[in-house]
Computed example of a mutant assay.
Amino acid sequence: MEFTMLYGKDPDTVRPSEEHGNETPAERRKTFRRLVDSRSATLLPGAANALSARIIEDIGFQAAYLTGAGFTNTQLGLPDLGLVTATEIIEATARISDVCRLPLVVDMDTGFGNALNTYGTVQKLERAGAAAIQIEDQVFPKKCGHFAGKAVIPLNEMLGKIKACLDARTDENTLIIARTDARAVEGFDAALERAHQMAEIGADMLFVEAPETIEEVRQIGALPTPQLVNFVVGGKTPMMQIDDLREAGFSLALFANAALQASLKAQQEVLGSLYKHGSLEQVRDRMANFEERQRVVGKPDLDALIERYEGS
């Protein structure tokens, strides 16, 4: 696969938006709305940090997802049990938006409090660069959508939070994604009913978490409001082909922690070999070289700017 630098080859003649997507948050939001409206099951990989987001953009994906579970695992070294704060997610959103030109979907868990807290969090996430913001109906502290022992708040309370999200945004293209975890708590029919109510209140997208059969996934895709489906290796939802998801009518196919699981495995293998052999010779082919590492984090582009501003 051929890769190009983040900002183009000539800082005097090439602007980021001309070759690599959207320069401003507003442009990213418009682009993302078009992706959602196309119902083409756009692949949405998860980024736990700014480096992952850079890799996602570099490969050629059209959007990225700030995963709350991945952020908790990588930044805190803890499981997804509602342990991150609004401030941490807002700061992570800003860091990613600074270096990644893709539209960013942000997982804000339960909104970090009541409807008033949710209102303020949406305002801050939008200012930080979010193109879409996801809120779920679990009882705080929430749990990973594929964990057992979840609980959901009353429907009216969740609808109030969605209203707060819609009122808080200043850009109509900032999409509000309403997620329900009721499938594991109250059953599939109850989850669909919640999804219908969330759509009626004005949610831009629906996310029915952890369906357990392909038929359930297809029923979710038939809902009139644009849909997101989440796949987790080892989770409750069976894997499906992208063509089948497009046929079912989904807008987004989320792989929130694929990169995280791959990274965890790679680190175990490389560091395990180092521990065993006292050398990296056996696993050199499992590692990016020094030049590739610097390219991905944009060093050639910054070198060009240094030459432009400080060179002779």
Rank of each mutant, 00 (worst) to 15 (best):
A182M: 07
E216K: 11
D189A: 15
L166Y: 02
T170M: 11
E209N: 03
E193R: 13
A178T: 04
E172N: 10
I214A: 13
A203C: 03
A191K: 01
D167M: 11
G202F: 09
P211L: 01
E216D: 13
A199D: 08
G187A: 00
G160S: 12
L175N: 07
T170L: 09
M205D: 06
T170D: 11
L175A: 03
A190V: 11
E215K: 13
I214V: 15
G160K: 08
E172V: 10
Q197F: 12
V217D: 07
E212S: 14
E200F: 13
D204C: 03
R218T: 14
M158T: 02
M158K: 03
I176H: 10
N173Y: 14
A195C: 00
E186C: 14
A190E: 14
Q197R: 14
C165E: 03
L166D: 01
L192T: 03
M205Y: 09
V217M: 12
A178Q: 05
I214P: 12
R179H: 01
A195T: 00
A190R: 13
A178D: 05
A195D: 01
L192S: 04
A210L: 08
L175G: 05
L192Y: 05
M198V: 00
E200L: 14
T174M: 05
G202R: 01
Q197N: 10
V208I: 12
G160T: 09
R218W: 15
A164Q: 00
E215H: 12
A190L: 10
A184F: 04
K163Y: 15
V217C: 14
N173S: 10
G187C: 02
E216Q: 15
I214S: 13
L159K: 15
L206K: 06
E157P: 02
P211F: 07
A184V: 05
V208Q: 04
M158Q: 12
I162D: 08
V208M: 06
M198L: 02
L166I: 08
E157M: 04
R194E: 03
V185Q: 06
A164F: 03
A210W: 12
L166R: 00
A168H: 06
T180V: 05
A184Y: 02
D189Q: 11
T213Q: 03
I201V: 15
E209D: 13
I176E: 08
N156D: 15
G202Q: 02
G202D: 05
L192M: 12
F207N: 01
V185T: 08
A199N: 08
M205G: 06
R194F: 06
M205N: 08
I177P: 09
V217P: 10
T180P: 08
R183F: 15
D189G: 10
F188K: 00
A182N: 09
E209P: 01
D181Y: 04
K163F: 12
E212F: 11
E172D: 14
G187R: 00
A210C: 14
E172I: 10
I176Q: 07
F207Q: 03
T174V: 04
L206N: 07
R183P: 12
E209L: 01
T180Q: 05
G160H: 12
E186G: 13
K161L: 00
C165G: 06
T174E: 02
D181I: 01
